[in-house]
Design a binder for these strands. Structure first.
Lengths: 336, 336
DNA sequence: TCACTTTGATAAAACGTTTGATCAGACTCA
DNA sequence: TGAGTCTGATCAAACGTTTTATCAAAGTGA
């Protein structure tokens, strides 16, 4: 923990000289000889600028917070990777926090956002974040960018092309010959769920065959998937295929199908939105739509960076690379 | 972003007075009247002490880093929860980092550990962390506590009772009547894998029936599980049951069993170490040994806290609550 | 009344960094 | 030679906190 003073003492110069040299101040006038003494001294003491000193001086911490609903969720892993790599390149450190810790009255919001710890916030809103908590996060003074979600009256969202995802998954099933296709969706209040429903309807509408619409809105967790499947199978004419709006929910669907004695894909085709390592390890392996989550993370950082530097930012959709169908073994033509 | 100065100005007192009152300085002599003026002013300005100012003053950031091999891994989710809650109670904020970012030559180590950003480090060493990277993390000046792992010559580890876990899982299978029980383990270099093997052997040794030992050491990932099962099924006398040292690996085992046409649990019983939400959503649902990962996290924070306050700390094992068998549907008596 | 203590408050330094202002000495040019 | 410019470096202030030392006024006891 050597300081500028230590380096200066060793090199026999003033603190300012050291600071100028080590921060590559272009306007600094310092002779080659002293410059070398300084860099040598810094190296031998293994000098690193003190974080708190800088933060105080600049009133900027070079830390951004990434708040996600659930760290466990494999879907977020790619997002986090994108955020971390983008942040690293721009000189930021990422402070990861769980949304459930962000209680409106709780200490976490103040601690994280109110003490100047973080310069900005990337916020991925989960299904189960209370409106109140969201409000108190958005009204905090920290520049914020919403990732994978939108909020009425809030500008600065980065989202995926969920319409395309819903459409692509549905078209895959239509292409296999299915006509009774249900959508097992997230909560109706969620923006991503609404968008995926739009895509689903678009695909159904385009289909020449009469394909009735059937949607459940129970959420993105395994349990929600189980509940939805049970509900759908109680229909007079149950679906022969389902689009599941989330891979975790789809895992629940597969489990419940076993319980109900429904064979996948022979009796029921399942395609899920989002790809993760889990998809290869279910039985049967899940057909999915891979979304550019890594790029979403990177773009989120870029957008936050722009906002931190005073630029006006608009809502954007990360459409590159486009959602991509990964056909595995959970989808097949309907039984004759 | 009100400062002490702002509050002082509003209350018409000095900065020192404000600091004393707001930090509950017991030795402070200040009249009730001014005390009230100060607290009122602070409240109306929504004052929060600036993080950087404090960090500079105390040369302490009140941040601890938690470095884990893989954020996606559901096994770590409980650990993280324990760490975060423990940290919160002790007034610390958790900075989560991925071990793979900690490259020896890379910038991340310096950035995180060398700039005074974090007071201490909780380090969960993964299978695939290079020895070199581990060394450079341990030689950093930050007080460090190893979680769920040990390192030769390093004192300050908090681990689980992996021997008991291995024993418990094996005894469950023995109790069902199995005699050909294999252990699908982690890498041989890993401490946890070695411990689980010890427990496995203990259980086999105690069994009256002749139960030969059979172990694979391919790692904790799904792919390792798949590889191990294929290998075991090539044996002259393949096992009728397997202890899988990790739940993620066990998911791979289940998948590979489907591919090989082996029915679980009729032809092969599977029990895994560690419980997670995924266990309930495999087919069949996985019998597991639940380990006290939450408590491990909390204890890790406690230990680090002690080390930060200059106390000598020894290696400890978190044995409470004890590993607990969760019988689901992946285990059954051997076929007659 | 004088010496002394108590009360209630403030001044100032320090943590480590950056940067505008300053300064001494050497050089340039008329 | 004297005025001005350039060079190479240092001084000092500021960011927001905490805390030791200081201080004025009021109270206490003989």
């Amino acid at each position: 923990m050597a300081t500028l003073g230590d380096v200066a003492a060793l090199a026999g110069v003033s603190i300012s000289a050291v600071s100028r040299v080590l921060s590559n101040d272009a306007s600094a006038r310092v002779s080659p000889a002293t410059r070398e003494r300084i860099t040598d001294a810094a190296k031998s003491l293994n000098y690193r600028p003190n974080f708190a000193g800088r933060a105080l001086r600049f009133s900027r911490s070079n830390v951004i917070a990434l708040i996600v609903p659930d760290l466990t969720n494999a879907v977020f892993a790619e997002l986090m990777r994108g955020v971390e790599e983008g942040a690293l390149e721009r000189g930021y450190v990422v402070l990861l926090a769980r949304a459930e810790d962000m209680q409106p009255g709780g200490e976490m919001i103040d601690r994280l956002l109110g003490e100047g710890r973080v310069d900005g916030v990337l916020l991925q809103v989960g299904d189960h974040v209370a409106q109140e908590a969201l409000d108190s996060m958005l009204e905090a003074p920290n520049p914020t960018v919403l990732v994978n979600s939108v909020h009425p009256g809030f500008s600065g969202s980065v989202t995926l092309d969920d319409v395309a995802a819903g459409r692509l998954a549905t078209e895959h099933l239509l292409g296999l010959g299915h006509t009774r296709i249900a959508l097992i969706n997230g909560l109706e209040t969620t923006y991503t769920a609404q968008q995926r429903a739009v895509g689903y309807r678009e695909a159904l509408g385009r289909a020449s065959a009469a394909a009735p619409e059937r949607i459940t809105w129970h959420g993105y967790e395994p349990r929600a998937g189980r509940m939805s499947l049970t509900e759908l199978m109680g229909d007079a004419e149950p679906p022969t295929a389902v689009v599941v709006a989330n891979i975790n929910s789809a895992i629940g669907v597969l489990g419940e199908a076993r319980v109900l004695g429904i064979r996948v894909p022979e009796e029921l085709s399942v395609v899920a939105v989002h790809d993760a390592w889990t998809a290869e390890n279910t039985w049967p392996p899940l057909t999915t739509v891979k979304m550019p989550l890594y790029e979403l993370g990177r773009h989120g950082v870029d957008t936050l960076y722009a906002r931190l530097h005073g630029e006006e930012i608009a809502d954007t959709v990360v459409a590159e690379p486009a959602p991509e169908l990964r056909v595995r073994e959970s989808t097949a033509p309907p039984a004759a």
